[in-house]
Design a protein around this nucleic acid. Structure first.
Lengths: 218, 218
DNA sequence: TTCTTCCTCTATGTATACACAGGTTTGGGC
DNA sequence: GCCCAAACCTGTGTATACATAGAGGAAGAA
């Protein structure tokens, strides 16, 4: 694999998985040494991270991993609300009803009996990802899907904060199921409304997790 | 100014202003020679253009300026519909009523008497840009504004196609005025609806311009 | 003791040399 | 005359050398 691509993927993962904490300063030579490549591919990786918004220029000190705040989560969800609602609405008009009915059925089953261990959790996340992928495929609108994709990078970074909240998991499954049902029914307005409700709850859960974390590490 | 930044700005302008037509193949050495810099800053510029979506990788032939099609315009407006409607709604909740009332007043004047020469057109575009900037400032939501900004790059590329349509200009001014009025009135639902109407008309005008162009140059 | 100035060091910006891959063209053989 | 293979050429990928700017520290003067 190309060194530049590899460097980008490693740094990307390190940031999203919180191995590189927000505020950490990155220098080209330092990362080049750590990743075992020269500065050139690291420069390429930095440039991509910058355009993704995962790092910010730090005047005179190179780049720093961008911070995560309650304010930034709110801003993130104000965009996500617009994107996902639009996507759900378009999918309801264009999607394959059978596919979404099937997804709804499986999500409902999961909402009623979420299970407790890691395997069950992973099964739920996999199913939620399949719903996202099905929505992407149904809207077939490159710019919209692209915007969602680049936002999901940031979402996956903050979502780690609320993972493991069992009660939220059950609710999220039920909300996903209802979105899938609305799309299967071909009801754009309902699909949009369900999406807004789901995102509102998700955001509340993440904001709660952030304030808890802040209290633990003030 | 840094050579990489300059190279990016020049290439960016060349693409948006249609001096580099869609499909044109770009090679590092060629552009480095044309712009009078070495390959390194050109590489940086290419990488930024790639992440903006203005160029696409052409397997085995370097990069090519991305194509513009009726389909891509539709996809663009499906995203813009979501972003601008959300922005207008948020601005109606948060914006300074006085500022938008003033903008509405001036846009109405322009809709009633648009004028005919280039100066009048420029005055209208300047006013429309001021409305966009005021909406951006009012929503104060970094992710949403950032998404709008990156989409506007592509929009400005296709908007050139419909510029000079005098009848559309008058209608667009009236629609902008109504958006500003709705925001000034603090009515999010109306602001969203006005935005959707405006964008629907804009898209129709651009699609009409594209099919006309296609007929002229089949 | 503190402020200012200069020096140094470390960071990035740029150029260029070299490696390598893929496509095309040309030459030889059938 | 056609087909296959090899070499070349053009393109990007990577490393490194050098220029330069900015920040931080040290030293001298007030």
């Amino acid at each position: 694999m190309r060194a530049g691509e590899r460097a980008h993927r490693l740094l990307h993962e390190d940031i999203v998985e919180w191995r590189l904490a927000p505020g950490t300063v990155l220098s080209e030579v330092e990362q080049a040494a750590r990743l075992g490549v020269s500065r050139t591919p690291v420069r390429e990786a930095f440039s991509r991270l910058l355009s993704e918004g995962l790092v910010e220029p730090q005047p005179g000190r190179g780049l720093a991993v961008s911070p995560v705040s309650a304010e930034s989560v709110r801003a993130m969800f104000e965009l996500r609300m617009a994107l996902d609602a639009q996507a759900a609405g378009l999918a309801a008009q264009r999607g394959d009803a059978g596919l979404f009915a099937e997804l709804a059925r499986r999500l409902e089953a999961m909402a009623e009996d979420p299970g407790q261990d890691d395997d069950d959790r992973h099964a739920y996340y996999a199913l939620a990802d399949r719903l996202d992928a099905a929505l992407d495929a149904a809207v077939a609108s490159s710019y919209l899907v692209q915007a969602q994709r680049s936002l999901r990078v940031h979402l996956s970074r903050v979502r780690r904060l609320s993972k493991g909240d069992e009660r939220r998991l059950r609710g999220a499954a039920a909300e996903h199921a209802q979105i899938a049902r609305a799309v299967a029914a071909g009801d754009p307005e309902l699909a949009r409304a369900c999406t807004r409700v789901h995102l509102s709850n998700s955001m509340a859960a993440i904001l709660a997790a952030i304030s808890t974390t802040r209290e633990e590490h003030p």
